[in-house]
Amino acid sequence: MGLAARKARSRLPGPGLLRLAVALCAVLLLWGCAPGADDEPVLRVDLSRRQETVVPVPQAGITYAYLPQYSHTTSYKRHHLLVEYLAKATGLPLRQVFPNTFDEHVKMVAQGQIDISFTNPFVYIKLARQGALSFARTIKSSGKDAFCSEIICRSDNRALKTLADCRGKRWIAVDPLSAGGFLFALGHFHDLGIKRQDFAEIAFAPGPGGKQENVVLAVLAGKYDFGTIREGTLEVLKGRVDLDQIRILARTRAYPEWLFAARKGLDERVVDKIAQAMFALSPDNPEHAAILEAAGLKGIIPARDQDFDPVRDLVRKLELD
């Protein structure tokens, strides 16, 4: 054996040291496997028993939406009895959904996420271009099937005595797609020779929802000189704000009332069932009367697309097409 091999062999542990190392490893291994070595018990898994995980899916059914002129809470309170009645009368799984803005409402109808839309006639014109079709319109609790815009200011605003005084003032409206809260008033000013550029500012109420209320509150707070709301809004807010501080400066001419429209492609049999259930509502029936009263309605009558041509004429006059 050479010198290098003898030196390498001399560096290897002897048999006694090897046996000692093996014994220590065995002791440590047994200690780790002994009961009580860990605080946690051994968990035995039976792979023969499995449970499938169910992924939740969106609730199916016919969707119904109220164009969000009021808060979601108000929209629900006004129409949830109607939705429940329609579901029971038709046997269809109707449910109310709540878009946050007018624009979102329009997009959801186009995408098939809203089947039945309760909307103003101005928004309906846009929906009709997407293929939606009106099938019913409302008669308000006042007995009228048409409505107007109210131009309001603070009762102590001495600078506003006539509509001509609105020139150069700050105007807050409901939404660019609001009929009573903007379009009708814009047309009324137009007929008086007052154009959009004649106002110091035209602002729109912040959302989501509650836009009619927000117009009234902004006028009350003095943030704007005057505002425009749909007829009937002040009645909705009675008891929530001091209406003695609000003065109605003017009212516009009336246009066809709000309506119900079905999205493009909705089964005609579904639409017919819903329409017939709506037309059957009678204020002489106590149960029906409660539903109609909550919604601020006297009844629901059939509608045709051409019923809303006066609004189309207004849109053309204002070059909003």
Rank of each mutant, 00 (worst) to 15 (best):
L28F: 14
D39M: 10
D156C: 02
E231T: 11
I274M: 05
G296F: 04
Y85K: 10
P302C: 06
Q245A: 14
S282M: 08
K223R: 15
G168V: 12
R50F: 12
G36W: 08
A289P: 00
A87T: 14
K126G: 01
D321A: 06
A185H: 06
A136E: 05
S71D: 05
D165F: 04
C153N: 04
K88F: 01
A87E: 06
Y76E: 05
I116G: 03
P35I: 04
L133P: 00
V271P: 03
L320M: 15
Y70R: 14
V174E: 10
A294R: 12
I125V: 07
G61H: 08
R78M: 15
A250N: 11
K107M: 14
F189R: 06
D242T: 01
P93W: 03
A37I: 05
L127F: 04
Q130S: 10
I274H: 02
T252W: 08
C33F: 13
F135C: 05
V219S: 09
A65R: 01
G227K: 05
I300C: 07
P256L: 05
L249A: 06
T233F: 09
L94C: 01
W31P: 00
T90Y: 03
R167S: 12
L160W: 09
H72P: 02
L133Y: 03
H72D: 10
G14S: 12
F102Y: 15
G112Y: 10
V27C: 12
A205P: 01
A34F: 14
A8Y: 07
R50V: 13
I300M: 10
F147L: 09
R9T: 02
Q245M: 13
G210R: 04
N214S: 13
V45Y: 13
I125R: 14
T90P: 03
A110S: 11
G222N: 12
R263S: 05
I172H: 08
L24Y: 12
L24Q: 12
E268V: 10
Q245L: 15
A173Q: 09
P283L: 13
K238D: 13
I248F: 11
E257P: 00
A275C: 03
L3S: 11
A23D: 00
V109G: 07
T73N: 07
P206Q: 11
E257K: 01
D46Y: 09
L29K: 02
L177H: 14
D198F: 06
G265M: 07
T252H: 08
A164C: 00
P208I: 04
E84W: 02
Q276A: 11
I125E: 09
D198Y: 06
D46N: 15
A277H: 02
L30H: 03
F135A: 02
H288M: 07
E201L: 12
N120D: 15
D321N: 08
P56A: 11
W171G: 04
V219P: 05
A289G: 00
E235R: 15
T73H: 10
Y85D: 11
